[in-house]
Write a protein that binds this DNA or RNA. Sequence first.
DNA 1: TCCGGAAGTTGGTACATGACCAAAATATAT
DNA 2: ATATATTTTGGTCATGTACCAACTTCCGGA
Lengths: 165, 165
Amino acid sequence: MADLPYELVEPQNFFSFCAHCILQMMMQSDGLDLSPRKVEYLKYLRETGDCRKIGELAVHFSVDPSTVSKVVQELASAGLITHRPYGRVMLTREGTLHAEFLLRRHRILALILTHYGLKGEEACQEASRFESYVSRGAVNKICRSLGHPTKGICGSISHEPGCEL
Amino acid sequence: MADLPYELVEPQNFFSFCAHCILQMMMQSDGLDLSPRKVEYLKYLRETGDCRKIGELAVHFSVDPSTVSKVVQELASAGLITHRPYGRVMLTREGTLHAEFLLRRHRILALILTHYGLKGEEACQEASRFESYVSRGAVNKICRSLGHPTKGICGSISHEPGCEL
DNA sequence: TCCGGAAGTTGGTACATGACCAAAATATAT
DNA sequence: ATATATTTTGGTCATGTACCAACTTCCGGA
């Protein structure tokens, strides 16, 4: 952060960025920074309206609670969820935005698979296997190319501001 | 292997399978059994006409020769390549067939990415990241849906017998 | 209010993948 | 035949994702 090229942003242009946009830009990752399991956790939390318990996640993903406990701590360290020991798990604002992307990515990818003859359920499962390795940039291009569809196979697709850039 | 349901194949139908088909069927994996790095090795060996040296692979993938040496041993154990210590690396018949699939998968996936606006090089790199997690079944469906294209972006696509099934 | 069982955490282990280094072994080329 | 280049071996390490056992904390009922 020491050598930020401040000159790149002319003073007269600086205020054309609103705080929200700056936050968005800072938050935007390439979409490849989360491991597959963490992606599943975030999507699940977003889909179920978050505020889940460790045990619920453990049952849903058929893993030991201790496994969930540890991964949840990592997600909390990453600032994507909040979790006090023995407490509930819930998405932060940033985690929510990221989970929105993860769901959009999943649904876009599952959707295009159905265009190639995969059945709904099959497309969903297939997408789940590889989606973690598909970059945000690629997703946005596919999304734009499809005209930002709003209907996926396993849920509706919501488009955050910025995805069409 | 103890409890194979021999009854499932009626004696009068058994000989309708030729040895080649049986071999094919036995060899056909779901396409998800190789780690990303191993996939890269096999594709490279197939593309460069195999019979490579460890050092070449190490340079090409920018990793330590010792890393290559170990992974190569694993591929040899899996029966996909032959490799005597200090000798050349080359694909077995099975390895060649599998590498053909890996190349077809890569090129099919890169191809469809270009249909969504990704540039050639970009599509190739993107595909390389996630292709290891895309099943043979899905690839075959996409392939069939595209009418078994023969021209990919980073090479021609060859279709083994069986891919259109 | 206290207590016991349920829920969650911690610490340890395990396995796969894939990377590195240093040292030993082998091959090759002069 | 020996020096140099290549490869292998044996360690170590990091990441991701699991498990188990033991411990801690929480909560609801008597």
